[in-house]
Design a protein around this nucleic acid. Structure first.
Lengths: 150, 150
DNA sequence: ACAAAAATGTTGCAAATGCAACAAAAATGC
DNA sequence: GCATTTTTGTTGCATTTGCAACATTTTTGT
């Protein structure tokens, strides 16, 4: 078997590790950048959806978001029509940090794709998109307490 | 920019989350399967190299390995020529659990590659291999305390 | 309309993670 | 040969992570 999943794990841990080290400079602690970029890009999202988008446990997301709020990167706003949900918005501080995150990501992206042609990069992206869509179904299934049979 | 890294992050978190849930059945706690497969496949490795291979902090690896030993999945053996290092070997228990891990991985692999032709799967693997080799250089660089300039 | 179910959010643990700081052995440079 | 640097391993601490368990609101089914 071609160890595709293993390579993805190695790549993801490397990238996350690098980002966590580099973003300490902006007072973002471990894991926080992942949430912040998404909130800046999709303001008004609720944390349940954010957790699902990122593929992280709901309670982990809840605490990471709470900390982002505490540190002034984002704000929670009550919804006028729904008392249960809280919509997430970036603050000025959050919006200010965002370009630095993107810049770092662009650099890592460039490094990751060193030696790649435009075409190869495009191909990789499309294949990864398909893998992600395939696997997120199982993630949701298992996360909800269901058992895969194999 | 094509968000290749973001897709990889989502895929990796999904897969890791699924595996962690599924391996509880074999008394493997969070993260342990990653180390165990490698020790079974490369017996005699030292933990420093294992951490580097997996792309995880040395101290995190140290504790994960200690726990694997404590739970009887692996053993540490002194090296006859080098008093500093300890070589890692799977125990019978470790070797027994290994096929279940591989089986799970194969299933996830199959799910991840649903709708892929043989050729597409091969292409993805080769592209990922190159990305991993590109990015692990930076990981080692940053992990050693160096600063990337961009 | 109303009971049952689902969605959303939180908190209490227990465990994993990772940086800093240290210790000891081995490798390197002169 | 010996001082210096590197490699390998550990421990202390603070933080993150995630499961279980709960509370509240919304949605669904009849």
């Amino acid at each position: 078997m071609k160890e595709i999943l293993r390579e993805i794990g190695m790549i993801a841990r490397s990238l996350d590790s690098i980002s966590n080290i580099e973003f300490k400079e902006y007072d973002l602690t471990k894991g926080q950048y992942v949430y912040l970029v998404r909130i800046v890009e999709s303001p008004g999202m609720i944390q349940e959806k954010l957790a699902e988008m990122i593929k992280v446990d709901r309670t982990t997301a809840a605490r990471a978001i709470k900390k982002l709020e505490l540190n002034g990167f984002i704000e929670k706003a009550d919804d006028p029509a729904n008392k249960k949900i809280k919509r997430l918005f970036p603050t000025e501080r959050g919006k200010t940090v965002y370009p630095f995150i993107i810049n770092e990501h662009e650099y890592s992206n460039k490094i990751a794709l060193t030696g790649f042609s435009e075409n190869e990069a495009e191909t990789l992206y499309n294949l990864l998109l398909r893998v992600r869509k395939n696997i997120e179904k199982d993630w949701e299934f298992v996360k909800k307490g269901n058992k895969r049979s194999y």
